[in-house]
Design a protein around this nucleic acid. Structure first.
Lengths: 194, 194, 194, 194
DNA sequence: AATGAATGAGCGTTCATTCAT
DNA sequence: GATGAATGAACGCTCATTCAT
């Protein structure tokens, strides 16, 4: 792993769990096994690192939904959507820091780079929505979904379900995550059915 | 407004939009029109302020769901749930800072007081879930909701919808919020129906 | 001496001898027997200190020329001008730091506050020129100085002599300062005579 | 222009306008279109650059006064001195950075290399004074200047006039530089006359 | 209840410099 | 001759907090 990647890894973690304001160059440097000054050989500022982490997430996300599109292409709409929810859950579990980083960037980006962050973050959101638009449109075409539904609204609502799941606040010790997702999807699917 | 309330008001705003690490006593003092020292006449530390803001939210939330329970008591389950979503939306719109403060406290509380925050925050969550449990149980009793459903799962899923709506990320300039909420609820309601 | 005065005293010294860029908050604090942070209880920034030192000089200078005017009012023009040069020399000797600070501020003020410094520094220059204008005008009226001379030019040239003397570069170990000033003045006085 | 010359050029500029403490290797490198490291292929330290710039000035100055001596050799003393002032003015105008660098080096050289700088800077001063000594001595011999004058004092005073003019603070928007110099010289010349 | 002065620790950043390539 | 990566020290400044008044 290059120094740059190393810095990005630990920055992601601290931005996610401590927040932009709470993360510090000193801690990131220490965790990365280098000095504060060295960070500045690779990034011009703390903001620059944040944006680099964001770029990394965007790239990761773009690849993810591209792969997902290909992988779920052959499935029925119902299966594709159900699988999507489960995959989102697994990904969120495996990349906890990335998930939290994403959510925080959406809820309240660092004040000074708010505009730039908001601008960048719209890309992965769009990727996800494009994927969902593709699936829902196909579902209507194939007759699996009644044509009376408005695709953008379906997309946004399903996007909401995805967020619930990635955030994970709907899961508690008394509920089984998998059953929860299964139920959530079933209600939605039955809800939009004939 | 007392000095204490004044401090809490501006603290809430900065904790919400700048994060715990990003908020500073100096800025809060300045916005409140007092000196830093004065803050320490009312609170013992920054953490103390955070917990006081949290307590305020808890009290506010407890009252809210108590009122909601009374207000929706006479309605059918369907109307009660639909109204709930709309009220949640209106409240989130009117109290943007409080909403963001709540979400951030859930996602990643200040590291040093994590345990205490997690402990406290479970209360408003429980208030909300108690309310929902009450409504869903009544709905099953009255036959409006099929008895095969598991109430805790219904509650958690509906709790998820509430969160989507308060966060507001499912709304974009191409969708009408009211219609979005209407659709979301309808899918859910139809989804859990017979 | 108040803390503020103490800070200003050591700041003046370091700004003069190390330059604005060369002076450091840490050294000023140390010399003043306080911590770096304490400086910021009294000044908002390094630039702020610089401007405060400048203000102090301006006030000092204004008082100086006001006193000089009163003190030399009764003398003949020749004596008044001669005395002026000697007083300037004594003052420069006694307030070495202030003199150097003044010259550096004129030659090349701190880049970031250049405009503000240039603006402020014009005041003491004007004070001095006003004094000289007063003396030369009186000298022409009384007939001590031929009326064919142009007062502004006389003032600027004499202002130049003042600067030579304050800078002190014309003095070396082989020359007697007092005689040097005496000569310099005599040449000038004879030069503008009939 | 060689890399070395390029570095020296930008160093001179920054030393002059930002001061030794205010100039930085990074900025000099950037302006020179090279990396910081490359500077160290040509100079061993920041101090080394400063001394190199100083050497360059010394060489430039030595050449200048040598040329001046030759050029003004055939003129009368009066013309030679008048021409000297005008040439000094033109040179100062054309080489603003060099002039400021020289003055700052005299007023307050970098603390760490003060001794070395003071030592070196005495050379161009001596060159100038040697030139002036030559002219004044010749003037006395030829009878143009009364023999009662003490040459070193004349030299130092004229050296003061030179400094006034190079510094340029005696010029303001209400005065014509050329006339100012003309007047200054005339007063001096008449002042030392019979 | 409120303040001004003070502080040690830490902030993000830049400094001049080194070294292997 | 020139570079990129790295560093320890220092930079100006802000942090949360204390204390006497």
């Amino acid at each position: 792993m290059t120094t740059r990647e190393n810095i990005l890894k630990h920055s992601l973690h601290d931005f996610a769990f401590e927040g932009y304001g709470g993360a510090s160059m000193a801690k990131i440097a220490e965790k990365s096994g280098i000095t504060k000054s060295t960070i500045y050989s690779h990034f011009s500022s703390k903001e620059d690192i944040y944006l680099a982490v964001l770029d990394q997430f965007i790239h990761y996300s773009a690849q993810l939904w591209k792969d997902e599109k290909k992988r779920l292409e052959t499935l029925h709409t119902e299966s594709a959507l159900r699988e999507t929810l489960f995959n989102v859950y697994k990904n969120a579990q495996q990349n906890r820091a990335l998930t939290i980083f994403w959510h925080k960037s959406m809820i309240s980006p660092p004040a000074k780079i708010q505009a730039e962050v908001m601008d960048k973050i719209s890309l992965p959101v769009q990727n996800m929505k494009d994927f969902l638009t593709h699936v829902f449109t196909k579902g209507i075409k194939s007759g699996e979904i009644p044509s009376e539904h408005n695709v953008p609204y379906l997309v946004n609502i399903f996007f909401g379900l995805v967020q619930c799941i990635t955030l994970g606040h709907i899961f508690d010790e008394n509920t089984d995550p998998e059953k929860m997702i299964e139920d959530m999807f079933n209600y939605f699917w039955k809800g939009i059915g004939k």
